[in-house]
């Protein structure tokens, strides 16, 4: 019991409290900048920058990359990239205060780390693809969209959770 308590202790915030603070942050963000939060935009900028440095001509010829490349400004110089940097810092602070920082692979005891990593990669690819198609992820489209009652935000949110619940059965071994 003691060991279990140690490994399973819920040292996290009360979810309602966390949600309340998150809501205040969203209000503040909209109040100051007029826009919502986001996360995958920074990754998009990274990919664009990466491709632009490795294969500039290819990037310019591609209809998608070229929309984010301009002569005088790096695609990394966007609001969302700075915000994502902040997320990394903030999470590091919080994790540090609570002693959660260490290298590890978190997975269900029933599966191997390797399997976890393979599924993480798969999930990442799908999420990256989907986030680009829907123009935003759970934070950019769903959360910030819902805050201003955007129709697209609600549709995206319903689609994410709907399909996640629908397919959860097939992935159950990974988690429980």
């Amino acid at each position: 019991m003691d060991i279990k308590n140690q490994t399973n202790s819920h040292v996290y915030w009360n979810p309602y409290f966390g949600g309340f603070i998150l809501g205040i942050i969203i209000i503040f963000t909209f109040y100051v900048t007029g826009r919502g939060l986001g996360a995958s935009g920074a990754m998009k900028s990274s990919v664009v920058t990466l491709v632009d440095t490795v294969a500039p001509t290819h990037a310019e010829n591609n209809a998608y990359y070229s929309t984010f490349i301009s002569e005088d400004d790096s695609p990394m110089n966007t609001w969302l990239v700075y915000e994502a940097l902040g997320v990394l810092i903030g999470a590091f602070i919080s994790g540090g205060l609570n002693g959660r920082i260490r290298w590890r692979i978190q997975h269900s005891p029933k599966i191997t780390s390797q399997r976890r990593l393979v599924f993480a990669l798969l999930g990442g690819i799908l999420f990256g693809l989907g986030a680009q198609i829907a123009r935003g992820c759970t934070s950019g489209a769903a959360l910030s969209g819902m805050a201003v009652l955007s129709t697209g935000g609600f549709i995206t949110m319903l689609a994410i959770f709907g399909s996640a619940y629908a397919t959860a059965y097939f992935f159950r071994k990974n988690w429980i």
Partner: peptide, 8 residues
């Protein structure tokens, strides 16, 4: 009016 290109 608004320069924000939002979303993720």
């Amino acid at each position: 009016k608004k320069a924000a290109e939002g979303g993720c």
